[in-house]
Computed example of a mutant assay.
Amino acid sequence: MSANSRLTIAAHAVAWIGLYQQQGHDVATSEQIADSANTNPVVIRRLLGRLREAGLVESRRGVGAGWRLARRLEDMTLLDVYEAVEPSPLFSMHHAPPNQACVVGAGIQPALQEIYDGVEDGLRAQLSRTTLADVLRATLAAR
């Protein structure tokens, strides 16, 4: 099973747009962002669509089409991005109910759900403490 990279690519896109705008540009194309993230522009457009629905970015159509931030990087957290691109919890239960006649099958879901809820709460707390401005600063410092 491979790791999910939606949050990483979405944060990359938002930070890239933020830097691009700081350099005096109005809008960025999905092709430009995809080139930086080394992925397909379709992947970027899908993620940016979710970010747009969450009110984090805006799109412009027609001449001069592209993407821009809807909020300042300082006013956006990684939690905002996470909630926009990750529609479901980090972990989920069985797709089919386990055998309730089995001692493990009967108790596994409640036991794991409590742990999973704690992990999700910790993740959300950590992501809420980091703005996209923080991410961009750390990104530029890492070079």
Rank of each mutant, 00 (worst) to 15 (best):
P110M: 05
L48D: 01
R61Q: 14
L73M: 04
R61E: 07
E114G: 10
A11H: 09
V103R: 15
P110Y: 06
P41G: 08
L132Y: 02
V119C: 07
R46T: 12
A106E: 14
N38M: 09
D121I: 11
E31H: 10
L112Q: 03
N99A: 11
I115Q: 13
A3F: 10
R61V: 02
H95N: 14
V27N: 13
V104D: 01
P98E: 07
A11I: 04
W16R: 11
M76D: 05
T8P: 00
A133Q: 13
Y20E: 04
D134L: 06
W16E: 11
V63Y: 14
R52E: 12
V135H: 06
A15E: 04
T139N: 00
A111V: 09
R45E: 06
V103M: 14
Q23A: 14
A28L: 00
L112G: 00
E114M: 06
L73P: 09
L127W: 10
S2K: 09
W67M: 08
H25T: 09
Q100V: 07
I115T: 12
T29S: 11
I108F: 13
A142K: 06
A65K: 15
D75Q: 13
D80L: 05
R52K: 15
L79Y: 02
A111K: 01
G105A: 08
A70T: 09
A13G: 15
G49I: 05
Y20P: 03
A101V: 09
L48A: 07
I108H: 03
T139S: 07
A106Y: 07
A133E: 14
T130D: 04
T8S: 12
D26L: 10
S92T: 14
S5R: 14
A34D: 08
G105R: 10
E58I: 00
I115C: 02
E86V: 09
S2W: 00
E53P: 00
T8D: 14
Q109T: 15
T8M: 07
V63R: 15
S2M: 03
T131L: 10
A70N: 10
R143W: 11
A10W: 10
V135L: 11
N40T: 12
D80M: 01
L127T: 09
R46M: 13
T29H: 04
G24M: 02
R124A: 11
A138P: 00
S59E: 09
Y82M: 03
D75A: 12
G64H: 06
A111Y: 13
D35K: 12
L132V: 11
A96E: 15
A11F: 02
H12Y: 05
L90R: 14
D134S: 09
D75V: 12
S88Q: 13
G55E: 02
A96W: 11
Q22L: 10
V104E: 05
N4E: 03
G107Y: 06
T139R: 06
A11Y: 07
L19M: 07
N38H: 08
C102S: 15
V85F: 08
Y116S: 05
R72G: 14
R129T: 15
L48M: 15
I17W: 09
P110E: 02
L19C: 01
D117F: 01
R60G: 00
D80Q: 02
H25Y: 03
S88H: 12
A10G: 08
R52T: 03
V103F: 11
V135T: 14
D26Y: 05
L79D: 01
L78N: 03
L7R: 12
L112V: 11
Q109N: 15
G55L: 00
A84I: 05
G24P: 08
S59A: 04
M1D: 02
M93A: 14
A28H: 06
Y116T: 06
